[in-house]
Amino acid sequence: MHVLTTVVGKRTEHWTDLFDVLCEQPDVTLTVLAADVSPVTRRELARLARVHPRLRYHVVPHLLGEGRTGHMASVLFRLPAGHDVTATRPDILHVIGEAAYLSTWQTLRLRRRCWAGVPTTLYAAQNVVTRFPVPFPRIERQSYLAVNHAFPVTPAALNVLRIKGYHGPATIVPLGTDTRVFRPMVTGMADRRFTVGFVGRFEPHKGVADLLRAAELIDCDVLLVGDGSLTSEVERAAMRRPGRVVRHRWVGHDELPVLLNGMDVLVMPSVEVVQRNVVPWIGIPLREQFGRVLVEAMACGVPVVGSDVGEIPYVVGDAGLIFPAGDVPALAARLARLRDEPALTADLGARGLRRAGAEFGWDRVADTLCTVWRDLRVPTRSPQTPPTEAGHTTREAIAR
């Protein structure tokens, strides 16, 4: 089964973990078409191509791009005429990108011109119903008509698809983690002070300032991994509390598990904001669409605390604690409870470890994707054919 998948944008490193696992499926040959991706993604694709003979990849030039507009929706492939990605007809076309993305429109146009009739599946993570400016709504409608099966990452993402007009089959498939890499480790720091961790962008909507204030209220250590516009605020906090606030720059997958295992709890204190990076007169609510680092921490046996924004409560489940977004005293109370109740901390860590392995491992995700793809190879279903009522239960079940 030859699967051709497209992926665009700077924050694409985690998809290479999925590609790695997909290539371990005995019947899968994978071709990756990428644009405007990070240097880390390029290096990982090159490494995977050396490891897996059945993986090919093409990082092609792009027009516009996330760097100019601030949004992945604007990325356009610049595929040279006669590029050899079109030479071989795939069995499945999988688009990692929302229905309204320009790259999705390009990919579906390429299918019409070069691989007419190839079954197509679409990743979807939008958890807010957003009305985009012209020409994005038309692209979105056309995409929904062309897609044979959708893979929303959460129930909220599935609900957005339905509200916006996608009526075809769908299977909820969460973002995953490589449980072979992210796992509990002995760090040799058993006598350290209680340490609260954060991994992500240092931006206002990530709640970094709230975390720093809460940690200071209960006098605990903080380990932050990342970068962003609030880096200077993080550095000021480190100067104010020397040795108690430590910051690491972005690290790769080989280093992040060690840092996660050095935390007593990982916090995702996000708040909801309105962004205006498509056009200034249209505000787009920005809520956490998933929170992949929560799963990575759970896979390491680290308990998690998250705000009640977006999909954080769905991902956390019973493996952590939730607090009202922006409520610093409430966050401090949750952290103090974990510090003072070791039995609770150990129980939540064990719950997270089980949850990560049972629901969020990339191997589970790959199995679900491949099951749907193998079924789609049988030409019995057309795009936008609503499933039977009995079929809803299976196709819209959470991949477990």
Rank of each mutant, 00 (worst) to 15 (best):
T195C: 12
F323I: 01
V293N: 01
H58S: 08
G65A: 14
C114D: 06
T371F: 15
H71V: 13
R339N: 04
G82K: 11
L331K: 01
F19T: 01
W250K: 13
G320A: 09
Q275Y: 13
I92G: 09
L110Q: 10
G349K: 09
R354E: 14
V95W: 11
V129S: 05
A390L: 01
A150V: 05
P387M: 12
V75E: 00
D27K: 09
A390P: 00
W105S: 04
I172T: 15
R381T: 12
T388W: 04
P137T: 15
V118P: 01
L158W: 09
Q106S: 08
P342C: 08
L321Y: 02
V365C: 10
A170S: 15
L369I: 09
G200W: 14
L335K: 00
T130K: 11
A34R: 04
A190E: 15
P184E: 09
P152M: 08
D20M: 07
V279K: 01
S38D: 07
G67D: 12
H58I: 10
P26R: 12
D178V: 01
V251E: 13
P137Q: 14
P303W: 06
F132V: 00
A237I: 05
W115N: 14
P342A: 08
S38G: 01
A356P: 02
L230G: 01
N261W: 10
A356C: 06
S382F: 07
V85A: 02
E235G: 05
A299N: 14
P324S: 11
R111G: 06
R241N: 03
R276F: 13
L217D: 03
Y57M: 02
P61I: 00
T5W: 11
A73N: 09
P119Y: 15
S232G: 04
T12W: 03
G9W: 02
A397E: 10
L338H: 00
R47E: 00
T120C: 10
G97E: 03
L33M: 12
L256S: 03
H392I: 07
F360G: 06
R287D: 04
R276Y: 12
V365W: 13
I398W: 12
C114K: 09
F151V: 02
F77T: 00
T104I: 08
P61L: 08
H62L: 00
V147Q: 09
V3G: 02
R374K: 12
R89D: 01
V271N: 05
F202K: 11
R162Q: 11
D367F: 11
R162F: 12
V251G: 09
V305T: 13
C370D: 07
R395G: 00
P119F: 13
G207D: 10
L33Y: 10
P379F: 15
L145H: 11
R339Q: 10
V196N: 02
F77R: 00
M268V: 12
V8H: 12
L93Q: 06
V234A: 04
V208S: 03
V265F: 00
W105R: 08
T88I: 12
F136H: 09
V59A: 03
L22P: 03
T371N: 13
E396M: 14
V274K: 12
E296S: 14
V147Y: 15
R249F: 02
G326E: 05
E235Q: 13
